[in-house]
């Protein structure tokens, strides 16, 4: 709740206090969003770097894998053994699985940042709405200052 200041003690709505509170919320919101966005950027960078490293490693290891089966005479010109195909299938399958999971991890990390950003926005808007409710409520209640005149009308 906003610090309404000394004016409220006289039944006068201090709308300036609410504006200051709104400004503070905005400041906090932008700061949080910036921090979240930067964290997302770092996470994405790390993920991309990992994926890139994974691809690079795969590409570097792929010739060696084929070469290993060639040395064993399991392959050659016009020759493709079932053993080699299965082995390479496992190799490539492992790679695509690991790569896909890495992408999922990255995606979920990024979703975590996205969610935080959305929650920050929702909290910011909700806080602003609550602040506005309090402000207008105080303005409306200040209208009940007519009750201060009750002694002059003979009411207790």
């Amino acid at each position: 709740m906003a610090d309404n200041g000394y004016l409220s003690s006289y039944g006068i709505p201090d709308t300036g206090a609410y504006q200051r509170a709104a400004d503070s919320l905005g400041y906090q919101y932008t700061g949080s969003q910036a921090t979240n966005a930067y964290g997302r950027f770092l996470a994405q960078s790390r993920g991309e770097r990992g994926l890139g490293d994974m691809t690079q490693s795969f590409q570097r290891q792929l010739p060696n894998a084929y070469a290993q089966y060639n040395q064993r005479g399991l392959t050659g010109a016009g020759i493709k053994s079932g053993t080699q195909k299965r082995a390479m299938g496992n190799y490539l399958g492992d790679y695509t699985q690991q790569y896909g999971r890495a992408q999922q991890d990255l995606s979920q990390d990024l979703q975590q940042y996205d969610l935080s950003g959305l929650q920050n926005t929702a909290n910011y808007q909700n806080s602003l709405a609550q602040l506005e409710v309090q402000k207008q409520q105080e303005i409306a209640n200040a209208a009940l200052g007519i009750q201060a005149l009750r002694p002059y009308f003979g009411a207790s």
């Binding site: 790569y99 992408q103 995606s107 979703q111 969610l115 959305l118 409710v133 409520q137």
Partner: peptide, 28 residues
Amino acid sequence: QLTNYLQSNYSNPYESATYATSENVPGQ
């Protein structure tokens, strides 16, 4: 004024959110 403010300044951040998915994630 309060009603007008609440209605005109309201936007649901979750309804039109852009976020990461497995489709647009970096990489292959």
